Amino acid sequence: MNLLIVLASNPYSHDFNTAVKMARASVKRNHKTKIFFMGNGIYSILRPEVKELVDNGVKVYYCAHNAEQRKVKPEGWAESSSMYGLSKLITEADKVIMLD
């Protein structure tokens, strides 16, 4: 299965913990797992748990416009994208979970 998690809520919300737990469970089941950070969720990309997910095989994307607005500079392991990129990820996914 191809799972996409979209996170738009702030990094210290319950949604962040939920996204991390779902991504870990998905990877354990050998699913292709992607997370897209946008809105205030862009701040979450700075948390160490996200790098841990990347190390375990999760692909991480972020909205470049939202990052620029919030003066966030994501690490090189996260792929810069856009709302157009998000729309492509959604069409490729079997399941999409939006946490806002």
Rank of each mutant, 00 (worst) to 15 (best):
M1P: 01
L7D: 12
S9R: 09
N10V: 08
S13E: 07
H14C: 07
H14I: 08
F16V: 13
N17T: 10
T18W: 02
V20G: 08
K21S: 14
M22V: 14
A25S: 12
A25I: 03
S26Y: 03
V27D: 07
R29T: 13
N30T: 14
K32E: 10
K32S: 15
G39A: 12
N40R: 09
N40G: 05
N40L: 06
N40I: 04
N40S: 08
G41V: 10
S44H: 03
I45W: 00
V50P: 01
V54Y: 06
D55P: 00
D55H: 02
V60D: 05
C63G: 06
N66M: 07
E68R: 08
K71D: 02
K71T: 08
V72F: 01
K73M: 14
K73Y: 01
E75W: 00
W77V: 14
A78W: 05
A78R: 06
S80K: 06
S81R: 13
M83V: 14
L86F: 04
S87Q: 11
S87E: 04
I90V: 15
I90F: 01
E92I: 14
D94V: 09
D94Y: 00
K95L: 02
K95V: 07
I97F: 04
L99P: 00
L99A: 12
D100G: 15
